[in-house]
Amino acid sequence: MKKLPRHIEEKFYDTIFGTVALEEFESWVYSDKEIETILSEDEYLELISFNYKKNGAKYELVNLLTDRYIDLAEYEKWRMLNLLYAAKNKDEKLPDILRQFYDLYCKGYAFLNDLGLGYGLTVEVPPSNYKAETWEEISETEKLELIGSFYPQLQSDIERAITWIENGKIILSGKTDEIGHYEYEDLRTEEERKSTVWTEVESDNKSGWSVKESNLKILNEEKRPTTMHKNYGGDTADLNSKTTLSFWSKFKSLWH
């Protein structure tokens, strides 16, 4: 497989996963002079002569790019580690990165339960004492206070996720299933899978539902469970964020 500069790989990867539209990729291939010098004459000719307008063009292009240029697993590992190391830097990008972790959690990366569903969702939907529905609606002082409340635990959780990926406990494939969820292999032990953010406070073995309370100080001040969890034979689903004790009591009555 031909090794390309990382920024070229990024363009190919974003096209594969739809961040870059087919029309944009086509225009880039025609206009970018660097790609012409990096690829062989035959490879470049193949891309500029490709029929981007025909039916099934996206499917054929994805196959072409993944067969010849992109190792999806290698690229996805690089992408995730980049995000994690950027989060570890604790700079102005951190809130957006935490929200990306929540998005990635929702798209199949369940190993980001703590980083995404814990910290990311708390940024996405601030605690009720901030009297705001979104991150953008709270003040700069409140933003600093909210992010600051995550430490030092957040740093430890970021480092833990980095270790999983670097040590091969989480093996990313870079592929998605039929509903667009990212696929990966999880080789962590039961102890390594234990959450540092969530503590189970009640469960029902018959139904598979449990309620978990956040260990984050800023959420504990609200004195409420923050996620309801359903075990589907190894797969999980969560109802999260604004779950209340009263709702949990009503839900629990359905078991009996």
Rank of each mutant, 00 (worst) to 15 (best):
I16T: 09
S246F: 03
E92F: 09
E222D: 05
W209E: 01
L144N: 15
D186N: 04
Y59N: 11
L254C: 12
Q155H: 08
E200T: 14
E23P: 02
G234S: 08
Y13L: 02
I218G: 06
V201A: 10
K206T: 14
V123M: 04
K206L: 11
E140K: 11
E213T: 06
S49H: 13
Y105Q: 12
K131H: 07
G208P: 08
D42Q: 14
K58M: 12
K242T: 08
K54N: 06
W198D: 00
L98V: 08
I138Y: 07
Y105A: 13
L4D: 05
E221R: 12
T37E: 13
I179G: 08
A21S: 13
T122Y: 09
E36W: 04
K2Q: 14
L22A: 04
S195F: 06
N220V: 09
D157S: 09
L117K: 04
N55H: 13
E142N: 15
S49V: 13
S253A: 10
N167M: 05
S210T: 08
Y119P: 00
F247V: 05
G18L: 05
D114G: 01
L239M: 15
F12K: 05
E23K: 12
F50D: 00
N167L: 01
E183D: 06
A110F: 08
I171K: 12
S173L: 09
D67V: 02
T243W: 08
T227A: 10
H229M: 09
G56K: 12
V197F: 15
E46R: 08
L64W: 07
F251G: 07
I35N: 01
Y184R: 02
L219F: 00
S253F: 03
N205W: 04
I138T: 03
I8Q: 07
T244A: 00
I16D: 04
H229Q: 09
Y119W: 03
A110G: 00
A86G: 04
S249F: 12
E124I: 10
